[in-house]
């Protein structure tokens, strides 16, 4: 499985991509929403994109909106991974079309569990 990690922080991209690779994903990265759209347009469609909210050039909410407006990207699951922690922000993100939402700081366990909810864990672990 393939994941696109979108975050303006290299440290956070490393943390998320590292965790995803340990779970069996191949990963690609982008530092903002515009770069992420470019990456989507170029390679095979990933299964998952983790999306930060506050980024320069194009923020995560705009990226989510644009992706969901494009029928070619319908199979892409979008999970916000962000420090925006207000109830209203989560509502906005879901309304824009994000499938899931993980608030920073998050543990790797929490990431795994969200992926499990989405049916996107490459290895299914027994209870």
């Amino acid at each position: 499985m393939r994941a696109l990690v979108v975050d303006d922080s290299r440290a956070m991209r490393k943390i998320i991509a590292g965790a995803l690779r340990k779970l069996g994903y191949e990963t690609v990265e982008a530092a903002d929403g515009a770069e992420a759209l470019k990456v989507l347009g170029e390679g095979p469609l990933p299964d998952l994109a983790t999306v930060d909210w506050n980024m320069p050039v194009m923020d995560g909410l705009t990226f989510v909106t644009q992706v969901r407006a494009n029928r070619e990207y319908r199979a892409l699951t979008l999970m916000m991974v962000t420090t925006e922690a207000e109830h209203g922000q989560i509502v906005r993100a879901l309304a824009a079309g994000a499938h899931e939402y993980l608030i920073k700081p998050f543990t790797v366990e929490a990431l795994e569990e969200k992926l499990s909810l989405l049916g996107l864990l490459p290895e299914v672990s027994q209870a």
């Binding site: 922690a85 207000e86 109830h87 989560i90 509502v91 993100a93 879901l94 994000a98 899931e100 939402y101 993980l102 608030i103 700081p105 998050f106 543990t107 366990e109 929490a110 569990e113 969200k114 499990s116 909810l117």
Partner: peptide, 20 residues
């Protein structure tokens, strides 16, 4: 806590059933 809320709770259920 926020860490507890991140654990396996689907976001749509979070916004429906919880308040900060």
């Amino acid at each position: 806590s926020q860490l507890e809320m991140n654990r396996g709770l689907p976001a749509p259920l979070l916004v429906r059933h919880f308040t900060r």
